[in-house]
Amino acid sequence: MTRTTPPRPVDVEELFPELVALRREAVRLHPRAGEPSPSESSVGGPLLWPAGEPWPLCPSTSHPEQWGQPATQGPVPMVPVIQIHRKDVPQLASPAGADLLQVLWCPFIVDGCPTATPRVIWRSSAAVGPVVAAAPSTVGTAPRDSIPAPCVVHPEPVVDYPSWDIPEELSPALQVRMEELEARTGLWWGYHLAEAPGIKLGGYPSWTQDPCWPDCPSCGQAMDHLLTVSSGEYDGESYRTWLPLEDRDSETGEEREDATGGRGAHRAARLMIGDAGGVYVFECRACPDRPVAHHWDCS
Rank of each mutant, 00 (worst) to 15 (best):
C58Q: 06
S42W: 10
S60R: 02
S171V: 01
G140L: 02
R285F: 02
I199P: 05
R256T: 14
T138Y: 03
W207E: 14
G220H: 06
L271M: 12
W164D: 14
I166H: 13
A71K: 12
A222T: 09
S163A: 14
P205W: 09
A183E: 12
G220V: 07
F16H: 10
P197I: 00
V158D: 04
P80F: 02
S238G: 03
D165L: 15
L29R: 09
G236V: 00
G68T: 13
A133F: 08
D99S: 08
T117A: 08
P136D: 04
T228W: 05
R119I: 01
P211E: 06
W164L: 14
K87P: 00
C284K: 01
P148M: 04
P56L: 05
Q66W: 04
Q66T: 13
C287E: 10
C212I: 04
D160I: 01
D289T: 05
V27P: 02
A33H: 11
P157V: 14
D297W: 11
V89M: 09
Q83S: 11
G262I: 10
L57V: 11
G261N: 07
G190S: 06
C219K: 05
G198K: 03
E254F: 15
L22K: 01
L193T: 07
L243I: 05
S42P: 12
L201W: 09
L193A: 12
P54R: 05
P162V: 05
P214I: 04
D88T: 07
P64F: 01
E14I: 02
V132F: 03
E182G: 00
C151G: 06
P211V: 02
Q83V: 10
G186R: 12
Q83R: 10
L19Y: 14
A269G: 06
G112H: 05
D111F: 07
V153G: 10
P288R: 12
C106Y: 14
G52V: 00
P114D: 01
P46F: 07
V79Y: 06
S206H: 09
E257G: 05
P59L: 10
F16A: 07
P214G: 09
Q69E: 08
S230I: 00
E179R: 08
G190A: 06
P291D: 11
V152I: 11
H266Q: 15
H266E: 15
S163I: 00
H295E: 08
E156R: 05
R119E: 08
V279D: 04
C216R: 11
L104V: 06
